[in-house]
């Protein structure tokens, strides 16, 4: 791969690196795993870069490749790493003295999001990034209607986790 291409890619990646960081934050729960995923996503983006034609914005293309990488790796690690079950989360939340301050609510929200499935996390992520349903649908490769239905389910699931 030519050097010019690499330089262009690295400068695109540098400008948009926060997208990768945010995905890592959502799919990992410690700094080490965060860094590993960051590197893995960077490598996958670089490998896929020659196929990026510039039809869409770099960031849009990046959302797709990065989320795919995160989802694939998340699935792989799930087979080996024991994840916390749903029940234990709602129990923990129930046990916490419910505090109405914003900060406390945010903590609970982040905790709840951590326990969504890989695809649900991707949906929430794009929602938090303020993407409209059309963009969400094209990034995840589903229809717009499907994206809406799925998002509603995720909202319901979060509601259930937060208000058991």
């Amino acid at each position: 791969m030519s050097k010019d291409l690499e330089q262009k890619f690295v400068s695109d990646l540098e400008q948009n690196q926060n997208i990768v960081h945010k995905i890592c934050k959502l799919y990992t729960n410690n700094q080490h795993a965060h860094n590993d995923l960051f590197q893995e996503i960077s490598i996958q983006l670089w490998r896929a870069y020659p196929k990026f034609r510039g039809d869409s914005k770099f960031s849009t293309w990046m959302y797709r490749v990065a989320l795919n990488t995160a989802i694939t790796l998340y699935r792989k690690s799930k087979r080996t790493i024991k994840t916390q079950g749903f029940e234990s989360v709602s129990f923990k939340i129930k046990a916490t003295d419910y505090d109405d301050t914003e900060e406390e609510q945010l903590k609970l929200l982040y905790k709840a999001v951590q326990h969504l499935s890989d695809i649900e996390k991707a949906l929430v992520f794009l929602y938090l990034e303020d993407k409209n349903y059309k963009e969400i649908a094209s990034t995840l490769g589903v229809t717009e209607v499907n994206a809406r239905v799925k998002m509603n389910r995720v909202k319901n699931k979060l509601r259930k986790i937060l208000n058991p």
């Binding site: 982040y110 999001v113 938090l128 937060l162």
Partner: peptide, 16 residues
Amino acid sequence: QLELLKKDWQKQDSTF
């Protein structure tokens, strides 16, 4: 609650 999360989410750029 999700709106609250969204607001917070978009503030975090400088933390990375």
